[in-house]
Structures are given as structure tokens and as C-alpha cells.
Design a protein around this nucleic acid. Structure first.
Lengths: 293, 293
DNA sequence: TTCTACATATTATGATTATAAAATGCAATA
DNA sequence: TATTGCATTTTATAATCATAATATGTAGAA
């Protein structure tokens, strides 16, 4: 049997791409450009476009290529989850849940996991390596893998918040820190939308994503990839743990208000104040939202 | 063909183990205790002990097990590099070198790497995943892997130092920070030995290891695994980059002197002073040792 | 010239299998 | 009662192969 095709994912990527570029009906979509954007060869882009043509998103012209058939903004939510990535993610979450619920022992062999989740070894290993990168499982010297405490202990949870608070605050104090004003405006819009009622209607995943993006944006402005990497890594963990905590939506107005305050401080050049405020902002969140373990 | 045996590595681990415990001739070495210590089953420990018996390091008694045949301190450098780990490490370094020298292109397929380094896929993937974890290579969505700038850019190098400086300083300022006085004394001894001439005779690897252990010890005292993880991760990278830089041994006396100063400050409870000094210590090292790229 | 469209080469996956190693249950022994 | 030493079960590796995917060279159209 062969591997799963990339093209469904590429289809989604193309839709996201034209949306983010706000492209209009009739614009040309050169193969190579798309291939470069997604870091693949022209082949999977080609088959993705063929599929999109069937769906009427793009229009093909012989020997001239593909052209957007509608304005990007009118595309709606044409992107569906692909079985590939949803499958992989689903198992990732399943493992996390099973571990948190104690259904998985501290040590398991690869063979056991292959049986449990009905995966071929290569697919399983891909997931396990991702988890290992996030730091909550590790390969044993002999057979099998061992889960670490990271996920289950209350202490780790609080340590994570302390870490985030330090990293983000200090990133902001680096000499290389420089806000991207355009991004800042966009973030302000998002936070305002959230504050103006969005916190009641948005899905948990959307709220969580918006929050993560806000913080990663701030750290990104430090221009130091090590700080950004560290934050990304811990955010992936956070997503996992907090995924199953019911969001206390009553806290969101305060949170977005604080986010907006941080943006204000940055924009008016009061960087050290912003950094200090950011620190307390994060530590406050960690203290309240911590799960009982 | 089957996998490589663990037991050569276990042999080395046993020797390290008895040395670190300063065990004396005749002490018993229970199988299960060793197995637990190394996180493996009794099987590979058993075969390691059999091997060590042939070499006269331990003595076997029928149905009673194995006993140390000499005082641990008299063992000398009985541990040789095992073909397994030296092989894996060697290829890891080779890849790094080849990349730094431009012999490897930014993108390579797995098949290409398998041919180049004559590795089966599983072995290669293990190495690639380790490298990916260190952040200087990543899997492409289609075929192949892409090297990132981390290794080659001067900017990354300096960013790394800024990151280390922040993490270590802040770790020391955490409320949970508490020095282990016994470790502290051992570190003082090491640094004193280094200062008393060791910096001229020790190998580069030994000096580098001592330095890393010093810093990881400090961060470990924060009791926050996220800080420690971050430092470990970046130290692995550092090892790689600085491995090929000739150590400026004339700087070592100053370095060890500063290390001792930090220990003094910690011991006398002047933590924030120690943290501040640590910060400048690291930033100073980064400024001077940076390689030309 | 740029780019597509097709043909061809190359690649990664997954299934299968042999084999040596690791893990483990348990009787025998100190 | 704890621990060894053996026997048995289970596991991970590596090699091979079929297959469907990705990558790429190139003629020819725009």
C-alpha cells in the first residue's frame, strides 16, 4: 500500500492562500508559485487544482493553467478536514486522553500501541516523535516508551506558566524587539471582536487559537527564534491540557481587555511597562485556570 | 538482521554507576537494581555482567549473582566507546559537518541520505528525528527534509546566547530555586581542578562537558523542568556548533573564576547578585567566542 | 521567455518475514 | 524472602517488495 496523498491538504492550503491574499476572480495561479509556497513539487499542486476545478473553485485553460473562478472572499468554508491530518491528530489526542485517564500505563511497547490504535509502525512513530518533541513521552533504551509526568502533574502545569511568563516578558525586553504595526492592528481587531461578544459565540478552539496567536505574535517581535520556539513548544502542550478544561468564559472579557492594554502600552513605546504587565497577566491566568489533579 | 545489543552500553553504565557510588570490592550488584537504574529489563544487564566478568571487573557466584571484583576507584577508564553509540553519534556529527561545509544541500530526500551514510531507514530516521528535535532540520510535507538556518547563521548563534542568559538568570530568580549544597561542593571541586591547571590538560570534550554540567546544574536547582529542558536543548545545539571551534584556553581561567564566584554568591545567599552576574557571564562568552560566518 | 502538460524517474509507505534482542514468568537456591 | 538463572514470550530491526505517491526534465503552447 502507498502513502496518503498530499493533495487534499494542498487543496485546503490553496483556499487559505487565496483568501489571505484577498485574490479576485480571474487571477492566475501559477503552479510553481504555489508549489514553492507549500514547499512541495508541482505534482501534488497539480492534482489539487484538478480537484478544485471539479468543485468550481478554479477554472482551467488549456496550456495556460488555472485561474481563480470566484473572488476569494466569497469562498466560504470550502476547506474540509482531510482524513489524513484529522486522523493523525485524532490519534494524538486519543493517546493524550487515554494517558490522562490512566488507560495507558507509564510504559508501553510500540507493538502494544500499534495494536491499540491500529496503526502501521511508521505512522505511530511519527506521532510518538511529535509527542516526544513536546516532551511528554520518551523512548526507553530497550523496548518501549515511557510517559513523563508533564501531562499529569499539577506542579508541571504551574511550572509551565512560570516559564511562559518569563519567556514572554523577557522576549519583550530584548533589544531586537520591535512590533510589527500592521500585525498589531490586526491583533487589536481580533481582540476587539472577541471582546464585543465573540467570547460568547466563538468555539473553544477558536478562542484558544486566537489567544495563542496573540502571545506568539508578541514573542515573534523579539526576532529571536529560540524564544519563539520555546513558546510554540509549550503552547502545543497547553493546548493539550486545556483542551478538556471548560473555558471560563466569564474571564474572557478581562483577558481581552488586558491584551488590548498590552497592545496600547507597546504602541505608545512603554515597553518595560508592557513586559511587566504581560508577566502578571500570564501568571494570573495560570493561577486561576489550573486544573485539579 | 536484528538490532544492536544494548549490553555494551550497559557495561559502560555499570562501570559509571559503581564509580559514582564509590563502591568497594566485594559489593553485591543485584540485577533488578541495575535494571531499574538504567530503565531496562534484567536481560541486557545480565549479559553485560557476563561480559564484565570475562574482563575481571566483577566476579560471579553461582545462584548468588555478581560482585564487584575491584574497588570502583581502581577501575580506570575501562569504558570504551561502543560501536553502537559511537556510530550513531559519528553520523550525527558527520551530517552536521557536511551541512556546515555545504556538502549537503538545503533539501535532501531520505533515500539520498540512506545512500550517503549507508544506513537503513529506521536508523537514519532516528537520527533525523533527533536533529529535528534540536531544531535544525524539518520534514517537508512531500518528500525529503530541509535544513534550517539555525546552524549556519551568526545571528542564530548570538540569539542562542541571549536565550541562555535569560533562561539561566531567570531560573535562578524563581521562588522554587534552591541550591543542592552537596552538588555545589562537587562543582566547586571540578571548577577548582580546572582552574588549577586542568584547563591546559583536559580534552576539549571534557572541558565542554564540565561547562555544560555546571550550567545545567544551576538551572536544575530551579526545580522547573521547562527551564531545564530549554537549557538542555540549546546546549545540545551549542555542542554541535562549538565542537569545531578551537577553544581559546587562555579564557578558561577567567571562566572558571567566574563560575566559582557564582557559587560563592549562591552559597552566601546573594541570589539576585548571582543571577545578574550569571547573565553577564553568559553574554560575555557569547560575544567573544562567536564564530565567523 | 514563462509556464503548462505530459512522460519519466525517484521517493516514501506499508505489508511481510527472519532474526536477535529485550522482557518476563517462575522454579531453584542462598 | 529476595534474587538468580533459565525458559518462554514478546519486541524491535532490517531487508525485500509492490504500489501509489512526489519530484523533475522537457517539448510545446501562450
Amino acid at each position: 500500500m502507498a502513502r496518503n496523498s498530499l493533495s487534499p491538504q494542498i487543496s485546503n492550503s490553496i483556499i487559505e492562500f487565496v483568501k489571505s491574499k484577498e485574490m479576485r476572480k480571474g487571477e492566475h495561479l501559477p503552479l510553481q508559485m504555489l508549489a514553492d509556497a507549500f514547499r512541495v513539487s508541482r505534482a501534488p499542486v497539480m492534482s489539487a487544482l484538478r480537484r478544485l476545478e471539479e468543485e468550481g473553485v478554479v477554472r482551467a485553460e488549456a496550456n495556460r493553467g488555472y485561474f481563480l473562478a470566484v473572488d476569494a472572499e466569497n469562498l466560504g468554508i470550502t476547506s474540509r478536514p482531510t482524513e489524513q491530518e484529522s486522523g493523525e491528530d485524532a490519534i494524538y489526542f486519543k493517546i493524550a486522553e487515554d494517558r490522562l485517564a490512566g488507560r495507558l500505563p507509564e510504559r508501553v511497547s510500540e507493538a502494544e500501541l500499534m495494536r491499540l490504535y491500529e496503526l502501521p509502525r511508521s505512522r505511530l512513530l511519527k506521532i510518538l516523535h511529535r509527542i516526544a518533541d513536546e516532551g511528554w513521552v520518551e523512548r526507553l533504551p530497550g523496548n518501549g516508551w515511557a510517559f513523563r509526568q508533564t501531562l499529569t502533574s499539577r506542579q508541571s502545569y504551574e511550572d509551565g506558566y512560570a516559564f511562559r511568563a518569563v519567556i514572554e516578558q523577557q522576549a519583550m525586553l530584548l533589544p531586537s524587539f520591535e512590533p510589527d504595526l500592521e500585525e498589531l492592528q490586526r491583533a487589536r481587531q481580533t481582540q476587539t471582536a472577541l471582546s464585543a461578544g465573540g467570547y460568547q459565540t466563538w468555539s473553544r478552539a477558536e478562542i484558544f487559537k486566537a489567544n495563542n496567536e496573540f502571545h506568539e505574535m508578541l514573542v515573534g517581535w523579539s526576532k529571536n527564534e529560540f524564544f519563539l520556539d520555546a513558546i510554540r513548544r509549550i503552547n502545543r502542550l497547553r493546548r493539550l491540557i486545556e483542551y478538556h478544561i471548560t473555558i471560563d468564559r466569564s474571564r474572557l472579557p478581562k483577558q481581552t481587555e488586558e491584551h488590548l492594554h498590552i497592545l496600547d502600552l507597546i504602541e505608545s513605546g512603554r515597553r518595560s511597562e508592557a513586559a511587566a504587565f504581560l508577566y502578571t497577566h500570564i501568571m494570573g491566568a495560570g493561577r486561576i485556570k489550573a486544573p485539579q489533579v
